[in-house]
Design a protein around this nucleic acid. Structure first.
Length: 576
RNA sequence: GCGCCUGUAGCUCAGCUGGAUAGAGCAACUGCCUUCUAAGCAGUGGGUCAGGAGUUCGAAUCUCUUCAGGCGCGCCA
């Protein structure tokens, strides 16, 4: 119906001013109106045209209104306010959305606006040096749902986790684990910068069966430097020198343990990846045929990388970054950035139309240098979209939960799921724009009352399920036709019908802006309307004809609630 | 100092590609259960959209500026 209206509008515009038609077409919108007072469908085209053509919006609205009325397709057309056109559909057309929803079910809201565009989303990508904590959970929920939304709007989505398995952090992890196995006569020596936390001991306990530590602590900490950074590096060096093969086994083992625990946590959180990409798979900078070396060489050949002070630098002028960045250190080791440049080259070479990176907001200063590298490698930085996710503050018993990664004392994602379950966790992670601070109240997420929006929405769904069951038990369905609603005259559900008509546009907006919270707010509003209807109307005392209309309508409301929850990766609950 | 983000009701937040009277939940107060789940509904009060200036027919929304808060500015990852 909106397409029909738009077609008429374009004809109308062409008849007034053919030159500016395209400009107006790009700016105006025709959409389901906010509420029924403003008709079923509304358009601001006359105000947009008015401003571009420098003519009076209200007069344009009057003219367009006459054109639309002549079509005789609508119940009524009115011009309102500063120049809006509000269209009232014929009842048959207005209620037809219910048949549509009940027919295509979970297809309602899906579209092909993405036209099969290939998008890769890289997210979480937490260093495999410890369990995922609640901060990672937000990025995980966000990335996963962005993927679902993009898929629902016709994009080909691949989700990827980048495992930083090559750097110094992994050496620190390995050292931390091995140290737990070294018999110590000195009381409780442990480097300040080593990883602490119970998981280190758990890995060490399993590792015991794989290796035998033949050296003692004195050998490791001989001449150990005071500085905490130098200290851990020295420990690592000594451990490698003392027994390289045990080191290698321990390293592979620790990494495998951590990665598998991360995979488990994400699986329980209903977050799935198509690909787990190892940083190490791009090889070593010392190997001139490795992927990482090739990337750097390409930058050099293109004249964007140069040598200075013994290091190799990337010229980042292309993106307007603050300064040039080091790719290869003075001592010949590659920086983390160099790996990342190679990784992004790898992603682009795989043929994606768009790369979405989801990063912690503290990494925003990193965006420009990556953009510069993409341009420098001959692709376009416009392919890259970086979405930043802000930290989440956790509140429990009214108090902020303190986190300290250093000491190993933090609230893990697993802790959170054990506490409130994956669905409530996903819901609250997504309840606010990703790039803004989130106060996550664990107590609220567990409450059985209206202030817990998660339950409020689930309750609306469960109420419809229960009502459908009651109707069937009462054998109302024997005599009524549950196939079509076109002859419907019962109008107390109209505000519900109007609300569910908005759903496809909500998904479209969420997809365009990559903002899942739009769906959460919509579901809350829809649930509210449902509860309101439920309270005001006693369904079972209605006539059979009306019950037919009501059940058809409520089933479609249920379907929309279900579709909305499912796209967020949340399962609807049939019974509270 | 520079860069990014934020400032909307007592609290937590929507609204921000300029448009119809600035919305919701919580909290406060008042009503509604012999009928489908009261884990709910209805109503009342509550706002100089941080301050100031500008752009325009029209600004919470765009521009500039001031103030306040968060984050980032390594040959760390």
């Amino acid at each position: 119906m909106i397409d029909l209206i738009n077609k008429e509008i374009i004809t109308f515009l062409s008849s007034i001013d053919i030159e500016n038609t395209q400009a107006i077409k790009d700016k105006y919108t025709t959409s389901i109106s906010e509420d029924l007072n403003k008709g079923h469908i509304t358009t601001n085209v006359c105000m947009v045209a008015g401003s571009i053509l420098k003519s009076n919006p209200k007069e344009l609205a009057e003219k367009l209104k006459k054109k639309l009325i002549q079509l005789q397709c609508f119940e009524d057309v009115v011009s309102a306010g500063p120049g809006f056109i509000n269209i009232f559909l014929k009842r048959k057309d207005f209620v037809s959305v219910i048949n549509h929803i009940n027919e295509i079910k979970d297809g309602y809201g899906k579209s092909n606006t993405g036209k099969g565009s290939k998008i890769q989303i890289e997210f979480v990508s937490a260093n495999p040096t410890g369990p995922l904590h609640v901060g990672h959970g937000r990025g995980a929920a966000y990335g996963d749902v962005i993927g679902r939304i993009l898929e629902a709007t016709g994009h080909q989505v691949k989700k990827e986790y980048y495992i930083n398995d090559a750097g110094r952090q992994i050496d620190i992890l390995t050292a931390s684990v091995i140290l737990k196995l070294v018999r110590s006569d000195i009381n409780n020596y442990f480097p300040k910068n080593a990883y602490k936390g119970k998981y280190i001991e758990e890995i060490a306990n399993k590792l015991k069966k794989e290796i035998r530590v033949r050296y003692n602590l004195e050998q490791i900490i001989e001449n150990i430097p005071q500085d905490s950074e130098e200290e851990i590096d020295k420990v690592i060096k000594n451990l490698k020198n003392l027994d390289q093969s045990s080191w290698n086994i321990a390293k592979t083992f620790s990494l495998k343990e951590i990665v598998s625990s991360i995979k488990d946590d994400l699986k329980n959180f209903k977050v799935y990846f198509d690909n787990w990409f190892n940083e190490s798979s791009m090889g070593d900078i010392a190997d001139s045929s490795s992927e990482i070396s090739k990337s750097i060489n390409k930058l050099k050949d293109a004249g964007h990388a140069y040598e200075k002070d013994g290091a190799i630098w990337l010229n980042t002028d292309l993106s307007g970054d603050d300064k040039h960045r080091v790719l290869i250190r003075e001592d010949g080791r590659a920086t983390y950035f160099a790996s990342d440049v190679a990784y992004h080259k790898n992603k682009i070479d795989r043929g994606f139309n768009k790369l979405i990176n989801i990063w912690g907001a503290d990494h925003h200063g990193y965006i420009k240098r990556i953009e510069a590298s993409i341009d420098a490698l001959g692709s376009s930085k416009d392919k890259l979209v970086v979405k930043l996710v802000q930290f989440a503050n956790l509140f429990k018993n009214g108090k902020k939960v303190k986190m300290s990664t250093r000491s190993g004392e933090f609230f893990t994602l697993k802790n959170l799921m054990d506490d409130i379950g994956p669905d409530a966790a996903r819901f609250y992670y997504l309840s606010k724009q990703a790039d803004q601070h989130l106060d996550f109240d664990i107590d609220l997420a567990k409450k059985d009352s209206k202030d817990n929006v998660f339950y409020y929405i689930q309750y609306a769904y469960a109420r419809i399920v229960s009502l459908e069951k009651k109707v069937l038990e009462n054998n109302f369905n024997d005599d009524i036709n549950l196939n079509s609603i076109e002859s419907n005259t019962y109008d107390k559900c109209d505000f519900l019908i109007h609300e569910i008509s908005k759903y496809p546009d909500i998904i479209y907006k969420a997809s365009n802006s990559l903002q899942p919270h739009i769906i959460i707010y919509y579901l809350r509003d829809l649930a509210q309307l449902l509860h309101s209807y439920y309270n005001d109307n006693h369904v079972l005392s209605e006539s059979k004809e009306n019950i037919q209309s009501i059940i058809l309508c409520l089933s479609s409301v249920k379907q929309v609630l279900s579709n909305g929850l499912n796209i967020l990766g949340i399962s609807p609950i049939n019974k509270m």
